[in-house]
C-alpha cells in the first residue's frame, strides 16, 4: 500500500468511525458498517458485492467461507449468536462462500445469526452479507 494511503487510512480511522473490525484471534478483518444491516443479495451477487467492495481504503474483500464465519459465531449466546466487538449485530441469515458439496451448482451454505445454525440453501435466495479480508493466522 502506498504511504499516503496508509496515512489516509490511519487518519480516517481516527477521525471517523471505522467500517470494519479486526478479529485479534484470527487476524481476519470483517466488514462492520451499516451496509451489513441494509444489503441482501443472492449468492452470486453476494460474491460479486464483496469483490467490488471498497472499504477503509481496501479493495481485497471477499465473501467468507463457512469455517471463517464460524470464527465470529458464538453459539453460547443468541439473538444474535455473534461474538463481542461488532457494532452491527443483526439476528438474521447470512451467505457464506462455501458451496454445498451435495449440490454445488444450486446450493450454498447459509448461517443464521439467531442461534448460529448452518444449512445449505438454494443460492437464488437473498440473505445478508458481511465481507472479510485477510487470511486466518495459524
Amino acid at each position: 500500500m502506498k504511504p499516503y494511503l496508509l496515512l489516509l487510512t490511519v487518519a480516517s480511522s481516527l477521525l471517523f468511525a471505522v467500517s470494519s473490525k479486526q478479529d485479534d484471534k484470527t487476524g481476519l478483518i470483517w466488514q462492520d458498517n451499516h451496509d451489513v444491516l441494509k444489503v441482501t443479495k443472492t449468492h452470486a451477487k453476494a460474491i460479486e458485492y464483496c469483490q467490488k467492495l471498497k472499504l477503509d481504503g481496501f479493495e481485497d474483500w471477499r465473501l467468507p467461507t463457512l469455517a471463517e464465519t464460524y470464527t465470529i459465531v458464538d453459539v453460547r449466546v443468541d439473538r444474535p449468536a455473534l461474538k463481542k466487538g461488532f457494532e452491527v449485530r443483526i439476528d438474521d441469515r447470512f451467505w457464506t462462500a462455501t458451496p454445498f458439496a451435495g449440490n454445488p451448482k444450486k446450493e450454498a451454505w447459509r448461517i443464521s445469526m439467531s442461534y448460529g445454525e448452518a444449512e445449505p440453501y438454494n443460492n437464488t435466495r437473498t440473505y445478508h452479507v458481511r465481507c472479510v479480508r485477510g487470511s486466518v493466522a495459524r
Partner: peptide, 18 residues
C-alpha cells in the same frame, strides 16, 4: 443451546448441517 438448556448442539455428518 443458548436459548434453552433442554437442547444441545449436534452436527449431522451426512452434510455437515449444525
Amino acid at each position: 443451546f443458548a436459548a434453552t438448556e433442554a437442547r444441545a448442539w449436534t452436527i449431522d455428518f451426512r452434510t455437515g448441517e449444525t
